[in-house]
Design a protein around this nucleic acid. Structure first.
Length: 653
DNA sequence: GTAGGGTTAG
């Protein structure tokens, strides 16, 4: 029996006995130490395993007994692996002492193993000590340290040491490049590290590594994490060899950086183009994300069918993304159905469901799901609270939100982060309890960041509180001097208060710094095709037709009492010009396109990249009544379900 | 002897 080598927590092995019985010590797999106990008969017969048993006992006795006289490299290697498998740092330290005593710690092979061991046991300091004490630093030793430091989030140190390594004349290999590229991402100071990453990119090309698919994929991913989609795109295009991981990295890059349309395009190219890579579960997660971002329900359904056909429906992250996709496409029943069919549900699955109900304004339902989650024995995560507090905010459930917020630390041991405080500020601010919201900011246990001040400024906009808005924006501008959205928000508040001099001052400031607000964009899926609209889009082939229809609708609705909400326009123009501007908003163009192209009875689904403006909201409500159409619009915050002249948000958004 | 892509929110 090997009680020492095999902790109870390690699950029984699935590896066949022949793997364990490998004759060559060097080629034996990593598993055997964990795999031994389930097959005692094999262990009895196998000399290798018998010696493992002795080693186990030996290690157990390390404190009092000496090791065998001259432990071999293989003996030490197995002992190191055993410490890692048992997660015992104290044994690891004792073992390390033995290696130091007989000089084996100077063996670069064992030094590498020691570094890996300490890294996996969570002690990067000890890993570093091993490295510092190793005189013969082979590329394996360097790579092990780079990996350990990157895992511990010490990317800057990796880059510092990488420079040192280059000076000593040690050549990087393909593993080094993947580690140092990852180190660029695993640090804080963004722009400098991007420069460093580009420099390493140049080294890679200079040394002829562009055919190494691991290296190039890591490069794609590094640019993706920096949000440099064009660079990622370029590297991917130039790759001579691609596999499923490279395709997935590029699709994820698009999906995560606001290019969901391109993500879907690449997915179809992967499916239908001439290449030998086929999507797997990881690919599908990003593809579902892209469908959700576009509210592309028909595409999403196709993807769902593919998942079923390929048998990927038992994979938890895939199912979680599927729930989220249906939620974001406005198909609550479908989302709930997928969730109900799941055999196992983790906290992410529950969070997806909570946020699905939350963004649709079903606050009470979201709270109930949150409670069901706890009843089922799943502990909430910080994201669970972001979702459920967001749900309270959208539905105006202030008291429930306050109770949940105070339960975070008390009942669940989760301390509020900036995200949670921002949710509370939003919840109170929206409900016109600005004093309470401001008090939360004042009494926060952490420094209020841009998220929190932004939430406060947003609330000031809803309730037109100029004084508080000026205070919040002052801090916000200090923290995010180049975020044009914040300045636009303040200008909007001034405009609502008819303070045009101040509006112009903010606009001049923006112009002087060449800051531009993100242009409004809307998307609509019609017959599995996605169409995109911008308010200023000279090249849209449907422009004339859509404008004509909108003008006609607007005129008719005015006769029925529609008054255009022109106060959303930040220019001090004649009323007529303001009306023309609001009538050209991207979301109205998408509605008009949907009216022309969707069959009767079909729901119009639109997504927008910004918050819905008051005029588009009112206009769409009226259209839903006069055209007898159900219209779903998801803006950056939540869903609006327009039907028969009403919106599911109850004009509270 | 070591390596690359993914889930929920904002």
């Amino acid at each position: 029996m090997l009680p020492f080598l095999v902790p109870q927590t390690i699950k029984p092995p699935s590896s066949p006995p022949h793997l364990l019985a490998s004759a060559s010590a060097r080629s034996s797999p990593k598993l055997p130490l964990c795999s031994l106990p389930s097959n005692p008969s094999a262990a009895d017969k196998n000399p290798q395993i018998q010696s493992l048993s002795q080693l186990g006992n030996l290690l157990q006795a390390l404190q009092v007994l000496p090791l065998e006289p001259n432990p071999s490299q293989r003996t030490y290697e197995l002992l190191i692996l055993s410490c890692t498998a048992r997660s015992s740092l104290s044994d690891a330290v004792r073992l390390h002492r033995h290696l130091s005593d007989d000089g084996s710690d100077q063996d670069p092979f064992l030094a590498t193993k020691l570094i890996n061991m300490y890294s996996q046991l969570g002690s990067v300091e000890d890993a570093r000590k091993v490295f510092d004490e190793t005189r013969q630093r082979t590329i394996y030793v360097w790579n092990a340290l780079f990996r350990a430091l990157t895992t511990a989030g010490e990317g800057l140190e990796v880059l510092h040491l990488y420079r040192q390594m280059n000076r000593t004349g040690t050549q990087s290999d393909r593993f080094t490049y993947t580690f140092v590229l990852k180190a660029c991402v695993a640090s804080e100071n963004l722009i400098e590290l991007l420069m460093k990453g580009k420099e390493i990119h140049a080294h890679i090309l200079r040394h002829g590594y562009e055919t190494q698919v691991h290296v190039m994929t890591t490069l794609v991913d590094m640019y993706a994490k920096f949000g440099r989609v064009a660079y990622a795109d370029f590297v991917f295009d130039e790759m001579p060899v691609r596999n499923v991981v490279s395709w997935s990295a590029m699709i994820a890059c698009y999906a995560k950086n606001g290019y969901p349309f391109e993500a879907l395009e690449l997915f179809w190219e992967m499916m239908l183009g001439e290449n030998e890579s086929f999507p797997n579960s990881v690919t599908m997660v990003s593809v579902l994300q892209a469908c959700g971002a576009l509210a592309a329900l028909e595409q999403g359904k196709l993807v769902h069918a593919y998942i079923l056909r390929k048998g990927l429906d038992s994979i938890l992250p895939v199912m979680n993304s599927l729930v989220a996709m249906y939620g974001r496409c406005g198909k609550l029943e479908q989302g709930q159905r997928v969730f109900d069919q799941m055999k196992e549900r983790d906290v992410v699955a529950w969070n997806s469901l909570i946020s699905m109900y939350g963004i649709h304004g079903f606050g009470s339902k979201a709270i109930r799901v949150f409670e069901d989650m706890i009843d089922s024995g799943v502990s909430p995560s910080p994201i669970s609270f972001v979702s459920v507090l967001g749900a309270c905010s959208h539905a105006g459930h202030v008291e429930e939100g306050k109770i949940l917020f105070s339960s975070m630390a008390k009942e669940h041991g989760i301390y509020p982060t900036a995200e949670h405080y921002a949710c509370m500020v939003d919840l109170l601010g929206r409900a016109n309890r600005l004093d309470e919201a401001a008090k939360i900011v004042q009494e926060m246990r952490i420094e209020p960041g841009p998220l929190v001040w932004g939430a406060l400024l947003g609330s000031c906009r809803i309730h037109c509180n100029v004084d508080l808005a000026e205070r919040a924006s002052r801090r916000l501008f200090e923290l995010e001097p180049t975020n044009a959205g914040n300045y636009v928000l303040l200008a909007d508040i001034y405009a609502r208060a008819n303070m045009w001099r101040e509006v112009n001052r903010v606009k001049k400031f923006l112009k002087a710094r060449a800051l531009q607000k993100v242009p409004g964009r809307s998307w609509i899926e019609v017959k599995r095709k996605i169409h995109s609209f911008m308010s200023v889009d000279e090249f849209n082939p449907h422009k004339e037709q859509l404008h004509a229809l909108l003008f006609k609708l607007s005129t008719e609705m005015k006769e029925k009492g529609y008054v255009p909400q022109t106060n959303v326009v930040l220019y001090d123009l004649a009323e007529e010009d303001k009306e023309r501007i609001v009538l050209g908003h991207s979301e109205k163009l998408a509605v008009a396109f949907g009216l022309i192209n969707c069959n009767s009875g079909e729901v119009i689904r639109i997504t927008k990249n910004l918050r819905l403006c008051e005029d588009c909201h009112l206009f769409t409500k009226l259209i839903s009544k006069y055209a007898e159409k159900e219209i779903l619009v998801r803006d950056v915050n939540r869903y609006h379900h327009f039907q028969n002249g009403e919106c599911s948000c109850g004009d509270y958004w």
